[in-house]
Design a protein around this nucleic acid. Structure first.
Length: 487
DNA sequence: TTAGAACGCGCG
DNA sequence: AAAGCGCGCGTTCTAA
């Protein structure tokens, strides 16, 4: 944990002008926690019961693949089961049982190089692994579907209604202080400001920063979040913020040019990397996918082996066989080529690695410091992890710095709105996105406000004399359906 | 019986 | 041998 924000560490010469970071918007954050976010309990109950019946079906179907004479093995290893007499079924929640069934009894993936768990005890049954084995046995997609249903039910549809609090209609709500038109339920998260090593905020009890959005079923969960009666939800997020920051921090001419021209960075990378002239000839899986993966992954220190895994997963998920020319050597070449396209990014990472090794710290645009003593470890694995953290922290951390400035700028304006009698509240910070609730009739205004204020966070005095070298794109969205949705 | 590790997975 | 950054949380499994 880094509590060093803006403070120079004794004994560490700081070679550049590291500025004080003094803009944690604590009062605004406390206000968001008090407000909470509205939820539709009936929606969650209904969704939960659908998930439950699907789980029952899937569990039955999955269990039918277990050789009957081997069932005892599972019963003996699982202690909690056994209620209900005859209900001898596989516990799909147990990774151990799933592994035994798949790899010992059914021989799935035999002759293939299978990834093992972190401890090396057995073969992994993680999503990545199972995705590549999807077509080998009909049971595999069933397990994946069960896992999704189970996750959504346990973590979201069951939990959220339990911890929601009733905000009563009336002049002044005792919980949040706002007058509500009708009774409704809200969940209150705790926002932690000193939890992360990079300066990001964290959310717990419940974590509202990981509400599903990437799958169709997941988005149904997200739809359970609603505005209070008579209000609208509005959200605004930065697009490709970390990549733009890499362009800014590295001053890479090619990357800056692409962003300044407002082009599609993944497409532009694909055209240059594969030497394609016509944008229409760029294939989504063949060309754009690896570029997207590398564009995002590079800030995390992605290696050619990681890229190979990602490519295998991309193809498996799309149901396309991996082409025979796509191997680890190809991935290595591709990453080298990527750095040739964006040569100043190499210098960026070299600079961060130098700072890490020389001073054992790296820092963000606003001067938030992260110690990285790992880079001097005697263990190569730890050292390399430390270097990846060092390369990533100024990007992720600067994103957090600027996001906070954006939040502070937004809140300053919302205070004025409230003084003028408009009901408007910030509800949730999600790393590069801010969720806001506003009285009906003001939603378009507030969307414009969010885009304006967040989009100018880099011009703020707090980020110092640093010129904004890259356009920061902010996209606001009004939830017309009165549910939290994507796009 | 229980605290914590292991595993897996939701999000940016 | 591992091989991608930052989080929180649910269930299963294990060691005390």
């Amino acid at each position: 944990m880094s509590l060093y924000g803006g403070i120079e560490l004794p004994g560490h010469p700081c070679p550049e002008n590291v500025r004080r970071l003094d803009l944690l918007p604590i009062p605004q954050i406390r206000r968001m926690m008090r407000m909470g976010v509205g939820i539709d309990k009936e929606w969650l109950w209904e969704l939960g019961s659908k998930l439950e019946s699907r789980k029952v079906e899937l569990r039955k179907e999955i269990s039918s693949y277990v050789p009957p004479d081997k069932l005892e093995e599972f019963v003996s290893s699982s202690s909690g089961e056994g209620e209900g007499g005859m209900g001898l079924e596989l516990n799909v929640e147990s990774a151990e049982q799933v592994a035994t069934l798949l790899f010992k009894l059914l021989g799935v993936g035999s002759g293939r190089q299978l990834k093992r768990t972190k401890s090396g005890k057995r073969v992994s049954t993680g999503k990545k692994q199972l995705e590549t084995l999807k077509r080998e046995h009909a049971i595999v997609p069933l397990i994946l579907e069960y896992r999704e249903a189970s996750k959504l039910k346990n973590t979201y549809t069951d939990r959220l209604p339990e911890i929601a609090r009733l905000h009563p209609r009336g002049e002044e709500c005792l919980i949040c202080g706002r007058p509500h038109r009708e009774d409704h339920w809200r969940v209150h998260t705790e926002i932690l400001t000193t939890r992360t090593d990079t300066g990001r905020l964290a959310s717990k009890s419940p974590n509202l920063q990981n509400i599903p959005v990437r799958t169709v079923l997941g988005r149904e969960v997200r739809k359970a979040f609603v505005p209070q009666p008579g209000w609208k939800l509005v959200a605004a997020d930065y697009s490709q913020f970390e990549l733009r920051l890499l362009a800014h921090l590295s001053r890479d001419a090619n990357m800056l040019r692409i962003f300044r021209e407002g082009g599609d960075i993944h497409l532009a990378t694909a055209m240059r990397a594969f030497g394609i002239d016509d944008p229409k000839k760029v294939d989504k899986i063949l060309h754009r996918a690896p570029c997207k993966n590398v564009n995002f992954g590079i800030a995390y220190g992605l290696t050619y082996l990681g890229l190979y895994d990602l490519m295998a997963l991309t193809h498996a998920t799309a149901g396309v066989p991996v082409p025979d020319w796509l191997d680890e050597a190809w991935c290595m070449e591709f990453i080298l080529k990527w750095f040739e396209l964006y040569p100043q990014c190499v210098e960026y990472f070299e600079l961060q690695h130098y700072r890490a090794k020389r001073y054992e710290i790296v820092w963000t645009m606003c001067g938030r410091v992260r110690p990285v003593p790992e880079v001097r470890s005697v263990h190569k694995r730890i050292r390399e992890a430390g270097l990846r953290q060092a390369g990533n922290m100024p990007i992720q951390g600067s994103q957090a710095d600027i996001f906070k400035v954006g939040m502070a700028r937004v809140e300053r304006r919302l205070v004025e709105w409230r003084a003028a009698g408009v009901g408007v509240e910030a509800l949730l910070p999600i790393h590069d996105e801010l969720l806001v609730e506003v009285e009906e009739g003001w939603e378009d205004e507030v969307k414009t406000l969010l885009e304006w204020e967040m989009g100018r966070a880099m011009h703020d005095g707090q980020t110092g004399e640093l010129r904004c070298r890259v356009p920061i794109l902010t996209e606001g969205k009004v939830m017309e359906e009165d549910r939290w949705t994507k796009e």
